[in-house]
Write a protein that binds this DNA or RNA. Structure first.
Lengths: 170, 170
DNA sequence: GTTTTTAAGTCAGCCTTGTTGACATTCCAA
DNA sequence: TTGGAATGTCAACAAGGCTGACTTAAAAAC
């Protein structure tokens, strides 16, 4: 692996030696990048009565329409009481619809209403725009590496969740 | 640009087309990976009277000993009142020392005490261990790409912050 | 057919960590 | 010297995590 013109790539194979200094830079990169990652949806949601928790719920309901409350709980990694507070407001405001399960009537299946889909679009458009810009600036090889490292960084359970989401429509 | 079973590597230029689907996967990868990223320090801190905010303060004080409250504010991106609550407990518990500025007595310069350095070690050891494992699993090229994309994802101000931290000892 | 388990929802209360507003101190410049 | 700007502190509040206890309804197990 030889020197490239890319920013941040002078290290070559010395990356395998992984000094504490290099690892710390990766840690700080995650910290600052995650702030950027959430900044646009946060901006849209502030001023509405919603927050990041609502965004996450809307994202994954849109991702898997008809998912149950329990599924969502596992995906988001929060307690049902915490999720319930968020879902209650989204349902009351007509952004999410909760249908009693046909097969198992204990379950509630969650769907975005057209209004909910509208907000989802606004939020994900903003987030995708930033992602697209970053991907374009970094180039395809960097994007592949980005995804590879992120996957390796997840807990095994999260990685399973993440990969099972991929199967659906990849 | 053929389909590969292996996500992440060797995808070539097909990534430049950047479908919404691909972008969404990047978004979800960030979400799940960040959970993993913070999991280990969170686990250590729960049970103590501290949280993630304390970790962040300790990290950046260790990174830049003698930094002022205002510097830290800008780095962390929170209000001074929010930071102050965290600093107050850290100072009261003897993990952080606050020295009145010599030149400008309005400023407080922050340092970790030996005890504070001890906790910093415990926290960053855990976080670096995960990072190291992910880097090793992904390989050096992936790591370079990972850093490149993260940098591109930051807001310009955050990137400036991030890069100025790099200069110090890189 | 009764009992137990499971899915979901609710209420109450707590903690962390963000926010604004009000205020004290210090410095500097008009 | 006085008024404004910068720095830091105190108080109060809100969002969104958490646990625990409880109810309802349906499914599963016995």
């Amino acid at each position: 692996m030889e020197e490239r013109g890319h920013p941040g790539l002078h290290s070559g194979e010395s990356l395998l030696f992984l000094t504490d200094e290099q690892l710390r830079k990766g840690i700080e990169a995650m910290f600052f990048a995650y702030r950027g990652f959430t900044a646009d949806p946060d901006r849209i949601l502030s001023g509405m009565e919603y927050g990041r928790a609502h965004h996450r719920a809307i994202h994954f309901i849109n991702r898997s329409p008809g998912t149950t409350v329990n599924n969502l709980l596992n995906t988001l990694g929060v307690t049902k009481q915490s999720l319930n507070r968020v879902l209650r407001t989204l349902i009351a405001d007509g952004l999410v619809e909760s249908r009693v399960g046909e097969k198992d009537k204990r379950e509630r299946h969650l769907y975005l209403t057209p209004e909910g889909e509208g907000l989802e679009q606004r939020l994900s458009d903003a987030q995708r725009a930033r992602m697209r810009a970053a991907y374009r600036a970094a180039g395809p090889e960097a994007v592949a590496g980005f995804r590879t490292v992120l996957e390796a960084m997840m807990d095994p359970d999260m990685r399973r969740q993440y990969l099972s989401l991929r199967e659906e429509n990849s």
